[in-house]
Each structure stands twice: as structure tokens, then as C-alpha cells.
């Protein structure tokens, strides 16, 4: 139990500080064009690296995950909002999981 609180302090403390220190420290505009460009691209590359390939392993089958990503990606490119795309991904993945379970129960992947 004592372990839990120490662990929690490290987990929560390090997560907080890694967010708050840079946020509080950089009060001025950064002038370097390279740094500004880097900061412009970094959020998108972080999200991309977090999604690929982990999302393909997020569900029970790579097929359901791929279907979910494909459908989500399609709607995202059509300009649909966050919730719509997220729900569409889940429904597509669920549909493929159902298909795999009930229509092709004997096929192993």
C-alpha cells in the first residue's frame, strides 16, 4: 500500500512537471525559424507516431483495426469532427469483429 502512494507520486509528479515546466518557462516568443518550424510540425508527428503502428494492434484482429482506421481516416479527410471520426472507427472495427466471429468462425488469422 505504501508502495502505491510512492509510485503514484512518481507517476503523477513526473507527468505534471514534464508538462508544466516547459509551459511556464517559455514566456517569450521563440525567434529561431528552425525552432518555430520544429514546434509547428511536432504535434502532428507525435500523433502519427502514436497511431502507427500501435492502432493496428489495438483490437482483437489486425483486420478490424485496419477497417476502423480506414473508415476513420476517410471521414477525417472529409472533414468530419473528432467524435464522429472516433465513433465511426469503433463501429467499423466492431462490424469486422462481428463478421469474423459469426460469418467466418472457422477461419483463423
Amino acid at each position: 500500500m505504501k508502495d502505491f502512494w510512492i509510485y503514484l507520486a512518481i507517476l503523477a509528479g513526473s507527468t505534471y512537471l514534464i508538462r508544466a515546466i516547459p509551459f511556464a518557462a517559455f514566456q517569450k516568443k521563440i525567434k529561431s525559424r528552425f525552432a518555430r518550424s520544429f514546434l509547428y510540425y511536432i504535434p502532428y508527428t507525435v500523433l502519427a507516431a502514436m497511431t502507427i503502428p500501435a492502432a493496428l494492434q489495438a483490437t482483437g484482429h489486425i483486420f478490424s483495426a485496419a477497417a476502423g482506421l480506414l473508415v476513420g481516416g476517410l471521414f477525417a479527410f472529409k472533414g468530419k469532427g473528432l467524435t464522429f471520426v472516433a465513433v465511426a472507427s469503433c463501429i467499423a472495427a466492431l462490424a469486422v469483429e462481428l463478421l469474423l466471429k459469426f460469418v467466418f468462425p472457422n477461419v483463423s488469422f
Partner: peptide, 16 residues
């Protein structure tokens, strides 16, 4: 399983 995709769907919607 399907719910686990929600977060990634959200990421796609931010990038796209």
C-alpha cells in the same frame, strides 16, 4: 476491442 480504436480515430481527425 472496438472501443480501443476511439482514441486513434480522434488522432486521425486532428491530423487529416
Amino acid at each position: 476491442n472496438a472501443l480501443c480504436l476511439a482514441i486513434y480515430g480522434m488522432f486521425l481527425a486532428i491530423i487529416a
